[in-house]
Write a protein that binds this DNA or RNA. Structure first.
Length: 728
RNA sequence: GGGCGCUUAGUUCAGUUGGUUAGAACAUUCGCUUCACACGCGAAAGGUCGCAGGUUCGAGUCCUGCAGCGCCCACCA
């Protein structure tokens, strides 16, 4: 065998990678159904579906790299290996993005376009985005099974979502309630508690009385909401206010007629502020809870556009900020304002649109987290379903300390608001009779019930009257929570589901531990009475060189595709893995990427040397004592690496093979071989060189699949390296 | 306010259950167009492992306290 011409030039990643990608794709081996041999072990995993809002970023590159390492490793180890790719419709984010673009380009809002047209435009955008994601995932070398690609909003997943909704509703766990919810006036939708972030901002705290006659002073940063106050709460043991508890006052407050009851409530901290709290049941979750305890009425003051809805001259339709000034002016004029001070407080923001959250009472759909119900012959709650498998070790979380974070979240969890007032997403499978009652020969009470169905409902099953579907859509995380089994064919009792569920590993960023990981445990537990995965591997956030989070708006994002073009995919993959411990943030360093480009070339030249010097090799055994020793060292490396990868220490395994190949194999063994090959021990040494090269390529393959496969192919091996047997 | 984590060479980070002179990459210095590779080779310099105690035959590694940084959750009106 003469040495291929290619080896006279440095390794060219750009020329190689596309060709190798095609080779893999044509082989079909990324689909477990096509894998050769008898494979008893199973290894399955889902790729966290990227949002269809955009393009691949460094976080995706890291996820793909880590998951591909696991997948390729287990495939080579002889497992029936399935890694499912997909995309997430990311309802709020995607709709907000498209609406934004349309408004910028055409000056049109969602109302101008209407539901149907806006949806058409979003779907168009999502489709294009999906294509981009697929192309980019392929460039990363991901050995996913494209034939099983799933989209959270495709037909099969929609069916799963509707089935899930119906079943949970029938179990009494999905209910409709009029509650204070997190309303995002910018995105025009509700959000779950987890979709709200907090940011410190400066604000003014006003201390005042409602009226001159009112005995208690209160404080607030939001005077405009005080138009909806129905009580003042004080701590029942507070000596200053004890005598007022139970008393009621009628007050004229900036034109609004308030009826304020003084109530005693343990939740009030006597040491804070004036020790008295103006209760606004309609616009504060805490206040609503107090109101519930004391049966206080709720007066909505602010609407979905963050404007005043009370019919008060000078205030109606005013934005909250304006209304605030008007109220403050009024307080000053009436000499009711006692103090005005600057404070920093946390403002609630939408994690998708960054709009300021306005707590509003709304009729929404919820999932009951703490309600007890019968589940496979046992009493349980969804919280317990989430807590138990992590507690008893059925599910392992790496790194371990995230367990604590997880338990805190589960224990504090309130009911999950799942309805969203946007158009893009899974429409809630609920219909309402439009013509209730006896006029249609129906039963008034029955007709008033929401009709929950998996299939579309055309007319009221009770009276035959017209029906209308709930206009809302479901939280994106509802559909992604089903992901481990909806991608495998559920609710059908499919072969895939039996074979590949529970999945082995769920690898993702720690920032979506609650959003996604916890909710998958919930759904899988509820529907299948089974864990969704055995191990959760959490990776950190990739930050810029200054340690800042990368974001498009900051302009500090490093595009993995640029890096691939410059240094090759293998180099990016190695730079993302080596020295990156789980759960720890890391900074992107171009120098590091360049170093692994050099490493790819080093491998290339190692291969060249070995092939050049073993052309006349006769198949013999390694006989020389020294060679046997060297082989033993390598055997130990193999065992070590295998253990490391199996135990999720990719950062160690990758560094070990790097170090061995460069500083042991190349620097010592090859250098020494230049003289050994001139001695009587030539044959033994040739055999050693060849064996180490071939097995090293296998060991390195999960990390640097392209350069290793390319060399393997140039060695005219009959099989793909991707399905070669792991050497341990 | 509650919780979690981090602090190791100039920089970015490893250090897996405590065990021989604390590692890597990049950067730096010096010398090399040596016949696999200048995307390289050889050599060198660089750390009181945040601070203070403690446990131990032995601590970067375990415990306590302190300081600085970061993250998450809750939210105080």
């Amino acid at each position: 065998m003469s040495l291929p011409e290619k080896f006279t030039k440095p390794y060219n990643a750009a020329e190689t990678e596309d060709r190798i990608s095609k080779l893999w794709e044509e082989s079909g081996f990324f689909n477990p159904d096509n894998l050769p041999g008898d494979r008893k072990e199973v290894f399955s995993m889902v790729l966290p579906p990227p949002n269809v809002t955009g393009v691949l970023h460094m976080g995706h590159a890291l996820t793909i790299t880590l998951e591909d390492i696991m997948t390729r490793f287990h495939r080579m180890k002889g497992a029936s290996t399935l890694w499912i790719p997909g995309a997430d419709h990311a309802a709020v984010a995607t709709q907000a993005k498209v609406e934004n673009e349309i408004y910028k380009k055409e000056g049109k809002t969602r109302k101008d376009l209407g539901r149907e047209e806006l949806l058409r435009r979003i779907i168009e955008f999502a489709e294009a985005s999906k294509e981009t994601i697929i192309k980019q995932t392929k460039r990363m070398g991901a050995s996913v099974d494209w034939s099983r690609f799933a989209f959270t909003l495709d037909e099969k997943r929609s069916f799963a979502v509707r089935t899930a909704f119906k079943k949970m509703h029938d179990a009494g766990l999905i209910y409709r309630g009029y509650r204070i919810v997190n309303w995002d006036p910018k995105g025009q939708t509700t959000l779950s508690d987890d979709e709200v972030t907090h940011e410190e901002r400066k604000a003014k705290l006003y201390t005042f009385k409602y009226s001159k006659e009112f005995p208690i002073t209160i404080a607030t940063t939001r005077p405009e909401t005080k138009l909806g106050d129905t009580a003042v709460a004080v701590n029942p043991s507070d000596a200053r206010y004890k005598k007022y508890i139970g008393k009621e006052y009628d007050i004229d407050f900036a034109g609004a007629k308030l009826h304020i009851k003084i109530v005693g409530d343990e939740s009030v901290d006597p040491a804070f502020g004036t020790g008295a709290l103006g209760v606004t049941p309609a616009h504060s979750i805490i206040d609503a809870e107090i109101a519930e305890r004391h049966k206080l009425p709720m007066i909505p003051v602010i609407n979905e556009y963050a404007r005043i809805i009370l019919d008060l001259p000078g205030l109606k339709d005013k934005k909250v900020a304006e209304a605030r000034e008007i109220i403050v002016e009024w307080l000053k004029k009436e000499s009711l304002l006692e103090k005005e001070e600057e404070v920093t407080h946390n403002v609630a923001l939408s994690y998708r649109t960054n709009g300021v959250i306005e707590p509003l009472p709304k009729l929404q759909w919820f999932i009951a987290a703490s309600k007890e119900f019968d589940h496979f012959d046992k009493k349980t709650t969804l919280k317990k379903i989430m807590r138990k498998p992590v507690e008893n070790g059925e599910i392992e979380i790496i790194p371990d300390h995230f367990k604590k974070t997880y338990f805190h979240w589960v224990d504090d969890l309130r009911d999950w608001c799942i309805s969203r007032q946007i158009w893009y997403g899974h429409r809630i499978p609920v219909w309402y009779c439009q013509a209730c009652g006896p006029a249609h020969g129906g039963d008034m009470a029955k007709c008033a019930e929401p009709i929950v169905r998996i299939e579309d409902v055309k007319k009221c099953p009770h009276c035959g009257g017209p029906v209308e579907q709930d206009p809302d859509t479901l939280d994106t995380w509802f559909s992604s929570a089903l992901w481990t089994f909806s991608t495998l064919g559920w609710p059908e009792d499919s072969k895939d589901l039996k074979t590949f569920h529970p999945t082995n590993v769920l690898e993702t960023g720690y920032e979506i531990l609650f959003f996604w990981v916890a909710r998958m445990i919930l759904m899988s537990g509820f529907f299948l009475n089974e864990i969704p995965f055995k191990t959760v591997y959490l990776h950190g956030t990739i930050r810029d060189t200054k340690g800042k989070k990368m974001s498009k708006s900051l302009g500090n994002a490093v595009d993995p595709l640029d890096m691939i073009a410059k240094y090759g995919t293998d180099a990016i993959r190695m730079s993302l893995v080596v020295g990156t411990a789980p759960g720890t943030d890391s900074k992107i360093d171009e120098n590091k990427i360049r170093a692994y480009k050099h490493f790819a070339n080093k491998i290339w030249n190692i291969a060249r040397f070995v092939l050049e010097n073993t052309e006349d090799l006769e198949e013999v055994k390694v006989t020389a004592t020294k060679d046997k020793e060297l082989w033993n060292v390598f055997e130990n490396l193999k065992k070590d690496m295998t253990k490391d990868i199996g135990e999720f220490r990719f950062y160690l395994a990758s560094e070990k093979i790097y170090h061995y190949l460069w500083h042991e194999f190349a620097d010592n063994i090859i250098e020494e071989s230049k003289t050994v090959l001139k001695t009587r021990e030539k044959n033994s040494r040739q055999m050693l060189l060849k064996m180490i090269l071939e097995e090293s390529l296998k060991l390195l393959h999960p990390f640097m699949p392209f350069v290793t496969e390319e060399i393997w192919q140039l060695m005219k091996k009959p099989n793909l390296l991707a399905i070669e047997k792991w050497p341990v």
